[in-house]
Nucleic acid binder design. Structure first.
Lengths: 245, 245
DNA sequence: CGTATTATTGACCACTCTCAAAAAACGTGG
DNA sequence: CCACGTTTTTTGAGAGTGGTCAATAATACG
């Protein structure tokens, strides 16, 4: 386990003067989408850029929510814990995703880097002033929150009502869809998370995830070149499985 | 099943001139909280009030999201369906709760009245203009969305990682907490939803919900005067059960 | 009251979990 | 580059929680 202060040790907050947004690779799909150059410039005055190593903690549930984040490079998982250690991963995040949304108070979940991560970091205190001046930013945040809410509802349907096979099919399609949106390949997809993370995302055990994947491999709907990649060989069939048909 | 046009048949849209907000019973905890009298007056110019009978559909998943709602009287359930009819209830709503939030596009879930319902209805088109003028309203919407998101994350933890007993205990405490917030009794609580709705909310079957409740009754942690009410006889123990301790 | 609906209870079953071991992948230092 | 230990993944056997099917009981409603 990484020490709790690993984040701050490795923080490399880039001065706003260097305009990190200018070289941003994910501007088209990220938080900043739809904002004018001027508005982005305003945002750039308060943004910092943070580097976090793989397995590093970005923030912890219950902690004062001092920052909001927009992921630039890497993969992040969000999760909640029960007192006895049972874990539910509520989301996997990829470049362009926003997280840590809170108007006041504390984070409702923990965030951890799956891979080395680079993320934009907006201090909530400084953002507050901006929201008054640039209402479009607030509207953008509202839109992001609504999208997250829709994803959360889908996940509730998955967790409460889908079988293991349906869950795994839904998961593979979700990863594929999100890769496509970022301009990556739809079919050989990368799975930067381990079986344990997949299990905690789907409300299953590692063993059931592994067995279900090998079953799908036997059925020819997917191939597994290695445990970190999956080839979706029959996407229509996967979609049929995912929806319970 | 109620006919699909039942809502429009029973719609009684009250003219804005009659200022329904002035007599609002839930102003302290609802959408309008924290807004000035002037801002509420602006809202009142676009709000309509709608009556829906028990079991009436308020809107359906996939439908164009033309309105947002603030519940005044009654209980509402939100749910999503799989093609084969499996259902996941994502929330139960009580007076003061907001629903139908969408900036554009379609509803992500269906909404149905459990009891006779009275709800404020804001046309999204007219609200759009208001949001420009009164940024505080937008901030309020963002706050509501963030609260909903936190509730959704809790529910994901429940659905993915809690046992039947833990789920039922969590459910009873949730209803009790929400009743308390509206100034109602904490312990004999009303359960306006049937066993089938509880099951679809917790990702269980009716039989398991029923068995778990009778088990808890045998254990003395609750009493069931009738199927529509529950007495929480040992709240600390229920909390221990709900958190898996 | 009789009928329909909903809730409870019972018997049995299966999907997924638990526990355990083997296999594969990974990292590290010699 | 390989040997070694560690971690992760896969596979197996068995068990249990919650599901399915079915019958009874209670409740609501004409």
């Amino acid at each position: 386990m990484p020490p709790f202060d690993q984040v701050s040790e490795r923080d490399k907050v880039i001065d706003a003067g260097s305009h990190p947004c200018g070289r941003c690779q994910v501007g088209e799909i990220a938080f900043c989408t739809g904002l004018t150059a001027g508005e982005v410039a305003r945002l750039a005055t308060v943004v910092g850029q943070v580097h976090i190593p793989a397995h590093g903690t970005i923030f912890t549930e219950g902690e004062l929510a001092a920052y909001m984040f927009s992921l630039t490079i890497g993969t992040v998982k969000l999760y909640k814990l029960l007192p006895d250690g049972r874990r539910q991963i509520t989301a996997f995040l990829f470049p362009g995703d926003f997280f840590g949304l809170a108007l006041e108070g504390n984070y409702a979940y923990s965030a951890e880097a799956l891979t080395p991560v680079v993320t934009c970091r907006f201090p909530r205190r400084k953002l507050d002033g901006l929201l008054e001046d640039v209402p479009r930013i607030e509207k953008r945040l509202l839109g992001l929150a609504i999208d997250e809410l829709a994803a959360a509802h889908d996940q509730m349907l998955l967790l409460g009502r889908k079988t293991a096979r349906e869950k795994v099919a839904s998961f593979l399609l979700m990863i594929s869809r999100r890769a496509e949106r970022r301009g990556l390949s739809v079919s050989p997809i990368a799975l930067p998370m381990g079986r344990s993370d997949i299990a905690d995302y789907l409300g299953l055990t590692i063993e059931t995830v592994s067995r279900t994947l090998t079953q799908m491999k036997r059925d020819g709907v997917i191939a597994l070149p290695d445990s970190g990649h999956a080839e979706l060989r029959d996407v229509p069939e996967l979609k049929r499985i995912a929806e319970g048909a």
